[in-house]
Design a protein around this nucleic acid. Structure first.
Lengths: 128, 128
DNA sequence: ACTTACTTCTACGCCACGTAGAAGTTGCTC
DNA sequence: GAGCAACTTCTACGTGGCGTAGAAGTAAGT
């Protein structure tokens, strides 16, 4: 239940980027903009999509529990359920969780982490 | 390019479990056995598959770079390219890699790790 | 040469996802 | 309060991955 499609990911990226809940139309516009001349934004460059397409995707994301919508307001407003960092961390746990040899995995994982990140991890883990 | 199907995963589990390279037939038998009365093995319980099915899956796994085969021997022998731990760790890096806020992700990640694992991680990270 | 074991090719059904039109609903305006 | 405009829901189609396997091709032993 982990992976997202390309468009789904693009939408999530937008939702994660903006702090406010967004409408389908807003998202459609943002998705269209992303392609403009000098594009800085990543992802799904400049798709000019129908609003219904965005809505379909949002529904699917809602079904997957990644997005929730306020049904009260007239144009429903959508927002990510959890932050990107939370979601990614959860994904990592999911990947790790399916392993019978968690420690071995962690060993490999740590083994191929950058020095900076190792330092970060040490700090996060508190003093040994 | 990450996720595996159910059968693909079952096959990988077998390849990861056995240390020797295996033939399609062997794998087919192992997949069939797994269902027997008192099953201990996880996964895909007791599918009685055609050998061609297993071969198809193995080809796909080969294409994905997870498996390699010796073409010399007459019944080709298949083996996992990397250990399960390596593969899982790689997956974790993949998940993490797609995040612009790696540190935040790591923070969340270790925030929800068991005490034991935190301890393991401290050991793995060693002193500076 | 014939049979037998093994491999490759081709294929079908299902489901996720990108994509969107058609149909239904709600709220504003005259 | 009837009609329009905006919005949502329903339905659907094309593509591609995966489970599944038969048909066709190839090699190896008798």
């Amino acid at each position: 239940m982990a992976s997202l499609g390309e468009l789904e990911r693009a939408v999530m990226d937008l939702l994660w980027a903006g702090q406010e809940a967004a409408t389908a139309n807003t998202l459609r516009d943002l998705l269209a903009q992303s392609t403009q001349p000098q594009d800085g934004t990543v992802g799904h460059v400049g798709k000019d999509l129908a609003v219904t397409t965005v809505l379909t995707v949002l529904s699917r994301l809602e079904r997957k529990g990644l997005v929730e919508r306020e049904r009260g307001t007239r144009p429903h407003r959508y927002q990510a359920v959890s932050s990107r960092a939370d979601h990614t961390a959860e994904l990592m746990h999911e990947v790790l969780g399916s392993a019978p040899d968690r420690e071995a995995v962690l060993a490999r994982f740590i083994g191929s982490v950058t020095d900076n990140e190792a330092e970060t991890l040490r700090k996060l883990l508190g003093r040994s």
